[in-house]
């Protein structure tokens, strides 16, 4: 069984970090994982995306034309990837910045105003964690406990950020209900 999710948005939205936290959580749960970033000029403030592959077997191709799920943090990302997602996949749409939808009937679309929720939780910058938590709660790619632990590990060197991000996590989970 292999699952893939594409995280996509603007540079600076914490896209690569969301992917890393998910990959780390999956690794802790004993899965094979691969985190594949876009790199190069995109790193300098343009669009950023990364693909996280989680599998119970060794991962073959790191190039996935049709990922199973999508977390779209801005409109260009949704437009770029929505048509490539496999039928039945979860598509998380950051409705704080995206007013349109995928236009597809065969997807599990989840609209979450990640920006507003994060601001309410304490800091708008945690929108990526809100979206990640909502996505995981819906797709069940990893357990929420593993995700929580992975956030704590990621911010271990800046412990003052942990409470905010855990708050964002809880709010994200709630938004997916």
């Amino acid at each position: 069984m292999q699952n893939e999710v594409m995280f996509a948005g603007f540079g600076g939205q914490g896209i690569l970090l969301s992917g890393k936290i998910l990959a780390h959580a999956a690794m802790e749960e004993g899965f094979e994982v691969a985190w594949i970033p876009s790199y190069g000029p995109e790193m300098r403030g343009g669009t950023a995306y990364c693909l996280v592959v989680v599998s119970d077997r060794p991962i073959g191709s790191p190039i996935i034309k049709n990922p199973k799920h999508l977390v779209a943090m801005n409109r260009p990302s949704l437009e770029k990837f929505a048509q490539a997602i496999k039928p039945g996949g979860v598509v998380l749409i950051n409705s704080s910045l995206i007013t349109v939808d995928t236009g597809r009937q065969d997807l599990d679309e989840l609209r979450v105003p990640a920006g507003e929720i994060a601001t309410e939780a304490g800091n708008g910058k945690a929108a990526n964690i809100v979206a990640l938590a909502a996505f995981v709660a819906r797709s069940k790619m990893v357990s929420l406990d593993a995700l929580r632990h992975s956030i704590e590990v990621e911010f271990a060197k800046r412990p003052n950020l942990i409470p905010l991000n855990i708050k964002a996590l809880e709010a994200g989970i709630k938004a997916a209900e």
């Binding site: 890393k20 690794m27 094979e32 994982v33 985190w35 594949i36 970033p37 790199y39 190039i63």
Partner: peptide, 10 residues
Amino acid sequence: DGLIGQMMEP
């Protein structure tokens, strides 16, 4: 290749 350098894996 660039993928092996940029990719994260356990």
